[in-house]
């Protein structure tokens, strides 16, 4: 069975149609890249998949592991293994990152009927993962994303993904704001998570990320739908020629 199946998904925000019939199938083990111009609806797709309020689904279906994803609350989707690395991670004043990570992990475990992690177990895992991502443990004592640099926020997203070990991860421009070294470290973090059971959707504007996270399939997204699908060489082609051809195609 496919991991994620999106059929003719349509959604609007503030009475404006943004998604105009998205079709996408992600099988276990696959990494899909989505590229496309600003404002074409990539983040909207990520938000609709994860259940953000304010979006109205006007048609189509989405299943994760065969289950109707759109019928679930956002936290239930998360507990079933959907993770979104945000394009703009939120700041939560007064809540230590460590507390946030622990609350999130235990909330998901509870929903799945698993026992909570003990403090030593949790600390050990966080320290290990933080180290792999070159995140200073001191940073984890600070409130979630408050005063973090753009790159630190993105690395924090990858850390959360590593700890929550989702079945399907959607990374929305996780590369933007990262310097060259950080980009490598974050990409390695993502690659470590690649496995035969997991699927990933990597939204990006730049080929350079795809040098590190080599996708199985590349999609071009334009005006609310996927207008072309190909192998990893499609990304190179886009880098050279831009989206002009597709914009016309999508408008047609």
């Amino acid at each position: 069975m496919s991991l994620l199946e999106i059929k003719n998904l349509q959604a609007s925000v503030a009475d404006r149609q943004i998604l105009r019939g998205v079709d996408l199938v992600v099988n276990p083990g696959e990494v899909h890249a989505i590229m496309g111009p600003n404002g074409s609806g990539k983040s909207t797709l990520a938000h609709v998949l994860s259940g953000k309020s304010g979006y109205e689904v006007t048609g189509g279906t989405v299943t994760l592991d065969g289950i109707d994803l759109l019928a679930l609350e956002p936290d239930e989707r998360a507990a079933r293994g959907l993770f979104l690395a945000f394009q703009y991670p939120m700041e939560i004043p007064g809540v230590a990152t460590m507390t946030f990570l622990r609350t999130a992990m235990n909330a998901q475990r509870k929903k799945r009927g698993e026992p909570e992690l003990s403090t030593p177990e949790f600390m050990k895992r966080v320290r290990e993962e933080a180290k792999k991502l070159s995140i200073d443990p001191e940073m984890l004592k600070r409130p979630v994303n408050v005063g973090f640099s753009g790159g630190e926020k993105k690395r924090n997203e990858v850390l959360q993904m590593a700890l929550l070990a989702p079945k399907l991860a959607v990374l929305d421009e996780t590369d933007s704001g990262l310097d060259i070294d950080a980009l490598k470290i974050a990409a390695e973090g993502v690659n470590r998570l690649r496995s035969p059971e997991r699927g990933m959707i990597v939204i990006t504007h730049y080929q350079r990320l795809l040098d590190h996270i080599i996708p199985d399939i590349v999609h071009v997204f334009s005006r609310g739908r996927i207008v072309r699908t190909g192998g990893k060489e499609l990304a190179l082609e886009l880098e050279e020629r831009g989206y002009a051809d597709y914009e016309q195609e999508a408008a047609a």
Partner: peptide, 29 residues
Amino acid sequence: SEDMLFYCRQRGLSQEEAVALVVNGFVKD
């Protein structure tokens, strides 16, 4: 903010857990 709550919920917190977390952060001092 709704965005803050959604961020928490995407990580697996229910609406009430998210509100409690944000409020506890607010009153921590």
